[in-house]
C-alpha cells in the first residue's frame, strides 16, 4: 500500500532508464524477442535478456541475485499456460515467482519490481508490449533502493 501511494504521488523521472533483467524461456519469450527483432518492432532498450532452457529453470536465488546486483526490475517470461515445452515448467516458475515475491515482501523490498509473463514464440508484438509495460511500471516505481554502491 505504502509503495503504491508513494508512486502515485511521485513524478515520473523521464531521464530514469531502468535496468530490467528478463529471464526468457528459450521456447517462447526468447524466440518472440528474436522475431520482434526480425520484424523491426521497437521496444525500450533497457532490458537485459537472459536465455534459460525453460522458465521452470529459474531459481529464486537467480531472481534475488539480479536485485542484489542492482536491477530495478526483474521479469520471468515463460510459455502460455498449458503450452510448456516441458509440460509444467511455467507453472513451477509461476509458483517460484510468487514465493520470491513473498520473500521480498518479508524484508520490506517492493515485490512489484518482480513480475511473471506468459507468451508464445509467435507473439513478437506482445513481447514488445510486455517490455513496454514492465519498463513503464518500473519507471513509476523509480530506481531500486539498492543501487547505491553498485556499479552500473
Amino acid at each position: 500500500m505504502e509503495a503504491e501511494e508513494a508512486t502515485s504521488t511521485q513524478e515520473v523521472n523521464e531521464d530514469f532508464r531502468p535496468k530490467i533483467v528478463a529471464y526468457c524461456c528459450n521456447y517462447c519469450a526468447y524466440a518472440a524477442a528474436d522475431l520482434a527483432g526480425s520484424m523491426r518492432l521497437s521496444y525500450p532498450p533497457d532490458i537485459k535478456v537472459i536465455r534459460i532452457p525453460c522458465s521452470g529453470k529459474v531459481e529464486i536465488n537467480y531472481l534475488l541475485k539480479a536485485f542484489e546486483e542492482g536491477a530495478d526490475g526483474v521479469m520471468v517470461a515463460g510459455c502460455l499456460e498449458g503450452d510448456c515445452h516441458f509440460m509444467e515448467g511455467n507453472y513451477r516458475a509461476k509458483r517460484k515467482v510468487r514465493h520470491a515475491k513473498r520473500l521480498l515482501d518479508e524484508i520490506g523490498f517492493d515485490s512489484e519490481r518482480l513480475e511473471m509473463y506468459n507468451l508464445s514464440s509467435a507473439m513478437a508484438g506482445r513481447f514488445a508490449e510486455i517490455i513496454e509495460e514492465m519498463t513503464e511500471k518500473i519507471k513509476k516505481l523509480g530506481p531500486t533502493p539498492l543501487r547505491k554502491g553498485v556499479k552500473d
Binding site: 529464486i60 534475488l64 541475485k65 536485485f67 542484489e68 521480498l104 518479508e106 539498492l146 547505491k148 554502491g149
Partner: peptide, 15 residues
C-alpha cells in the same frame, strides 16, 4: 543462497 540473497537485499536497503 536464497537466505543470503534476502539478507544482502535487506542490508543494502537498510543502508
Amino acid at each position: 543462497a536464497i537466505l543470503a540473497g534476502q539478507l544482502r537485499i535487506w542490508g543494502k536497503k537498510e543502508g
